[in-house]
Design a protein around this nucleic acid. Structure first.
Lengths: 210, 210
DNA sequence: TAACTTAATGACTGATTGGTCATTAAGTTA
DNA sequence: TAACTTAATGACCAATCAGTCATTAAGTTA
């Protein structure tokens, strides 16, 4: 098969998301500066000029990729937290499972690695991401921890620090997949990983009976 | 004070490490592609041509920054593991503390973030880092977990997965510091963070008494 | 079906930066 | 102290790539 590009086709409605998806893939893999717009265009099946019909600049494309992303998953988590009636640990479990299903197993999964890599280069975008993604996710975990401590289900721990320790393995799981996982012979099984994490949490968080 | 550069000074012996230190700072902050050699030279107090007296290329400089780094800390950990006589949990605690003191509180602390960001762009270097840093660190944690499970101190868990979950918060702590921490109003206290992590681990790893 | 609108193209321009090297200046040697 | 060696310099060159725009081609309209 030759490398003849497909004939031109107008797709005004679909283009933005096609371009964003292509850009996300390459930004996640290579980082912002090392990604060439020629490659993004090729990945999307268009020419480079087409990118500038829909995005003002490379940076505008990058920002849209981050901004049009994971917020709906956070909204779902907020709903789960607001109507939960079981134990605090069950809530925590549901929140982490929802986060995993909505981000960890979707095309958004590369965003944590991308934000990790680029936050110092794009502080305003990092701020946006922090306010709209990280802070909201933390608040959900906080609500589960607060409930558990209040009811005596969980031991007393500093909540802000415990959120960090609870979330870290989940973040690391997706970040790892898009960075160092290529060097590892085996693949991490997310179900098993989550099971171990939850097991350690369940026992670790329990308030010690006197 | 004017911007007159300091007079030229020959420092053949000290130059390589000075250049590497300057490069590490900027590579960690901006990533490989977004770092300009002009800036590295300026940070080191030299001109750009000086970089090429000691390093063949930008990529050679980058590789040296990773390769001449954290391996001695891994050696120390291996020694700690080989001569430990207390409980398995005490071993684990010592290993994590040693890792923190040797990496987390030194100028090498940025390397995990840098490798996270650049591993897909430099797969051979990522392989080197995996073999010489990550694998060895994991082996140390594995030795503590194996001891604990064998002696009945710890519950039975899949060791490879548990290593991931044990290490993730430590990695995330340093990665976070060099990426998203700028957006967070408060700073994470590493001592408290480690204390919470170890508390959750101590209880989470315990084998349940029947 | 011709005239028109508009999405797409990719050659081109200008800015940027890695890498080079003729020159300069700091030390060393005789 | 002059001759020599060598570490350092920064202007320069060539390659690269973001962004532009005249042109082309896909649809739409009258």
């Amino acid at each position: 098969m030759s490398n003849i590009s497909p004939p031109r086709k107008r797709r005004k409605e679909a283009r933005p998301s096609e371009l964003s998806a292509a850009a996300l893939d390459l930004f996640v893999e290579k980082g912002f500066a090392a990604t060439r717009l020629e490659d993004v265009a090729q990945r999307a099946g268009v020419s480079k000029g087409t990118l500038y019909l829909y995005f003002d600049s490379k940076e505008a494309l990058f920002k849209s990729v981050i901004e049009d992303g994971v917020v709906p998953v956070l909204v779902e988590g907020e709903e789960i937290a607001s109507r939960h009636e079981g134990s605090a640990f069950e809530l925590l479990e549901k929140l982490l499972a929802n986060w995993w299903a909505g981000i960890g197993e979707t095309s958004f999964a590369g965003i944590p690695k991308l934000m990790t890599a680029e936050s110092r280069n794009f502080p305003e975008l990092a701020q946006f991401y922090y306010e709209n993604v990280i802070r909201r996710g933390r608040a959900q975990v906080a609500s589960a921890l607060e409930r558990g401590i209040a009811s005596g289900e969980f031991r007393k721990l500093d909540i802000e620090t415990t959120i960090d320790v609870v979330i870290a393995p989940i973040l690391m799981l997706v970040i790892w997949r898009y960075s160092m996982a290529c060097c590892q012979g085996t693949q991490v099984d997310p179900q098993q990983y989550m099971a171990v994490h939850l097991t350690l949490l369940r026992e670790g968080l329990k308030r010690t009976q006197v």
